[in-house]
């Protein structure tokens, strides 16, 4: 793999991590929509734990605050 491929892969992985951190509620919602199966149950459980952790560290709160502010802005203007 050449340098550009590595760089692109890293950029995409970093984007995924950031989205998982700041958008953990979407990750949780996504996991709840998976078909029930032993593997998906584990994914759902971990997505839920992850979201709780992100709430505790405040990352999920940032997202909520931004969403709320934007929602108020779009409603108002």
């Amino acid at each position: 793999m050449n340098t550009t491929v590595w760089q692109t892969l890293i950029i995409m992985l970093v984007a995924m991590v950031f989205l998982a951190v700041f958008n953990s509620s979407s990750l949780q919602t996504w996991s709840f929509d998976l078909q029930p199966s032993p593997v998906n149950d584990v994914i759902s459980l971990n997505a839920e734990r992850w979201h709780i952790l992100m709430e505790e560290v405040g990352a999920a709160g940032i997202t909520e605050a931004i969403r709320e502010t934007f929602s108020e802005m779009t409603g108002a203007f």
Partner: peptide
């Protein structure tokens, strides 16, 4: 270069996710 490219891509996606409908 790679770092600004990464920043624009990551921050851009994050901003879109933040303000997009659920």
């Amino acid at each position: 270069g790679a770092l600004p490219r990464a920043t624009v891509f990551v921050v851009g996606l994050l901003l879109i996710q933040w303000v997009a409908p659920n």
